[in-house]
Write a protein that binds this DNA or RNA. Sequence first.
DNA 1: CTCCAAGATTCCGCAATGCGGAACTCGCTT
DNA 2: AAGCGAGTTCCGCATTGCGGAATCTTGGAG
Lengths: 283, 283
Amino acid sequence: MATKSAAKRPAPNASKPSRRRESMSSTLKCFEAFDLLAQEPYELPLAEIAARLQQPLTTAHRLLATLTEAGFAEQDPASRHYRLAGKALWAGAAYLRNSPVYRAAFLIMQEAARHCPGLIHLGALHGNWVLYLHTVGSPSRLYLYADTGERRTLHATGLGKAILAWQPADVVNRIVSQKLERFTKRTICSPTELREELRLTRQRGYAIDDEEGVMGLRCVAAPVFDRSGISVAALSISAPVNVMAPAALEGFATDIREAAMKVSVQIGYRPASSNMLSLMGAK
Amino acid sequence: MATKSAAKRPAPNASKPSRRRESMSSTLKCFEAFDLLAQEPYELPLAEIAARLQQPLTTAHRLLATLTEAGFAEQDPASRHYRLAGKALWAGAAYLRNSPVYRAAFLIMQEAARHCPGLIHLGALHGNWVLYLHTVGSPSRLYLYADTGERRTLHATGLGKAILAWQPADVVNRIVSQKLERFTKRTICSPTELREELRLTRQRGYAIDDEEGVMGLRCVAAPVFDRSGISVAALSISAPVNVMAPAALEGFATDIREAAMKVSVQIGYRPASSNMLSLMGAK
DNA sequence: CTCCAAGATTCCGCAATGCGGAACTCGCTT
DNA sequence: AAGCGAGTTCCGCATTGCGGAATCTTGGAG
């Protein structure tokens, strides 16, 4: 039997301990193909896909056939190129429809938009990114296609800093120890400064993004807490610097914090149980 | 031995010819699980998932482990229930970002919203459904969560009828021969009537939805053509019946047809080749 | 029109990988 | 403590995915 079990662990070389995976490697490859289709070009020929996945043509073909049968990809009848199918959008929207934060925030954001200029964003923490869930506001959103579903860095957005400031230490450490990409001359790229910024954010109860992501755009953001008291999302108001003048910041901050608190309560946060927060200082 | 090769084609009984599938069955099961998570409840316990997929617990666990590793599902640390992860939204939005129709329509819709009341929708044909891609308009969209990514029937929406009216016969046949669900007393549920309605739609150049999907809501819709001259999407304006009075319909129709034509041109349609080609013996 | 090359698709024997019953672990309730 | 229910891990078996080679399709170039 020794030979038999030896076959089980085909790598005598120590590099790969050949752990029994609890997930299915063939399927994971299929999801890689899916990810690839979600990247830039609208559609890709099979050969290109095979090359990028570093898989033989035959395998790539099987993966795409599977994706197609599952409904998440489709093949252009003429060019034979593959692209994402509408079902991907449907599934993505399902995430939103089911998301408690989104559902709670929807009407509150609508309401807030009435007496706030600029754009109101809702973002949630997702891995090392803020994932944009929803936007309301003036229809001058010419500068963005489908911001919903997009992701940005945590350190260069108001939303990101608002979320990060109320995250457990290990998450903060993970983020801070990454390379902090620079977007404008104001972007905070030093770990130390970022930590200090988060401390300030906690102290004042909301985050400020002063042209750190895009020049000419200023933004205030407030965290949304779930029942366990950590931040899972944030709300922000952003507007051109002339609208969001320093003197006006405080007012916007109050509005957005109120809205964020309403959302928090709706998803189960109990403001009373605030042992860890002197944060909502105004209170 | 003989048994070995017999094992290859495990069905001596003729019922299953044991066709070699070109797609991977295990992966398809994984996508079934994905679909399931995209359904109603926010999260599901493993046992429930296994039951609904009609799979043994172990298998369900493997499927979910795979989905989780791929980043499309996540497990609540406390309840151990599974739910969709944000990556689903990201991938769905990628579909939009890459979609030529969406990109072409974005600014045109924004523009159209300036001088039109009500909501302007963009929908694309997807299987037997209209898939809603984008909406602009007055912020009184209280009645919908995330209409983007939702799908509705073709026969009971202006968008659907506008698309269907300029589809090849086989698609129309497929749709018409399905059961046509009733939503209001005005919904067109008879195949014959629907065909006649499509003929009228072609004749007048746009579709009208007169409280056929929702009572109190009227809508006009115009088709968007791709370079091959068939309809791939449609634009619509919908508003309460009092706003969209019979006398005003014509005006809205002109607006929406103009917008739809602009989109068509942007995605490669050549209005010059207006006569229903398909003849062109040259081929 | 004919031939050719590039790409996509299908074929098929081999063995790696997914399968699932059984055993195990971890919280909760009785 | 013991029992229960839900999730997780184990591991031998055989199904199913693998991928090189053969085949089919297309769209130019001659």
